[in-house]
């Protein structure tokens, strides 16, 4: 790899270091007790991850998130694909989706807790609700954009309608579906943290706000670092998976325009 290539792969790392430096300088400048420096926050990370209770709490959060996400993917992709190919299905669900879209799903937490208690079911349900819409939407867009003539060719080869859905629409819409899944993954994390912040029962979001209430400011910031890192790692891992699945799809060209 060329020196330039190395620089390019490492650039997000430099960005992280740069951001941490900015934080460090800002907190030294402001010098208030409630805004610890980056170094203090980083030092607090091992004590959180070393604590068995906290670690189990965080792993529990991730488990719920994974279950909610998988359920949402299994439900949303078929629905989105059907909406894209069958007009009546789209007209049926679209207005409902438009109404549900701006409702913060994590805000349903108090109501769902009222009905189903504070157990795993409530939390997984909220994550499921939070993640479903973008995946349905992307699957819908992807399957709507499938070239009609490809389906005609399939029909001419004697494929049945469900077969065409599985063998033509699904792979053709895959790049778009995976974009939806990527959004869904980040949203799952967000919904998980938020619902835990609101429910204040357990999990990563709960640790975050408990430490805020107890004025353990370095723990607050350390927890933010941990959650942020989770976001970055999940996203990067999924992006790798996505690229290997849709290698055939045109990559987005990001050459700067030439007129300067």
């Amino acid at each position: 790899m060329t020196a330039r290539g190395v620089l390019k792969t490492l650039s997000p790392l430099f960005a992280c270091i740069g951001l941490l430096c900015v934080w460090q300088v800002a907190s030294l400048r402001l010098d208030t007790e409630s805004f610890p420096t980056a170094l203090e926050a980083i030092k607090a990370i091992p004590s959180i991850l070393g604590d068995k209770g906290s670690l189990l709490n965080i792993l529990d959060s991730i488990r719920r998130m994974a279950i909610g996400l998988v359920l949402a993917v299994m439900f949303s992709i078929p629905l989105g694909l059907l909406m894209g190919r069958i007009k009546a299905v789209a007209s049926f669900f679209n207005p409902l989706m438009m109404i549900i879209y701006p409702v913060p799903k994590a805000a349903l937490m108090p109501i769902i807790m009222l009905w189903m208690g504070v157990g795993d079911v409530s939390k997984i349900l909220v994550i499921f609700l939070g993640v479903s819409l973008p995946i349905i939407y992307h699957a819908f867009q992807g399957s709507k954009a499938v070239e009609e003539k490809m389906l005609w060719s399939g029909a001419a080869m004697g494929m049945s309608a469900p077969m065409r859905m599985l063998r033509i629409v699904l792979p053709a819409a895959l790049p778009e579906i995976l974009t939806g899944c990527r959004t869904g993954l980040v949203l799952a994390l967000i919904t998980m943290i938020t619902s835990e912040m609101i429910a204040r029962q357990s999990g990563a979001g709960n640790i975050l706000f408990n430490s805020l209430d107890m004025a353990q400011y370095d723990t607050v910031f350390a927890m933010i670092l941990i959650i942020g890192a989770m976001g970055i790692v999940f996203d990067a891992a999924f992006e790798k998976l996505r690229l290997s699945l849709v290698r055939w799809s045109q990559p987005r060209d990001d050459m700067p325009l030439s007129f300067t």
Partner: peptide
């Protein structure tokens, strides 16, 4: 600008911003 913004966005975009809320409250 691209060389600076791109890595920053790649790092910051997938972070659940709501997790920053306690920090914003404190600051």
């Amino acid at each position: 600008v691209n060389a600076v913004v791109k890595p920053l966005v790649r790092v910051l975009a997938p972070i659940p911003k709501i997790a920053l809320y306690p920090a914003l409250l404190l600051i």
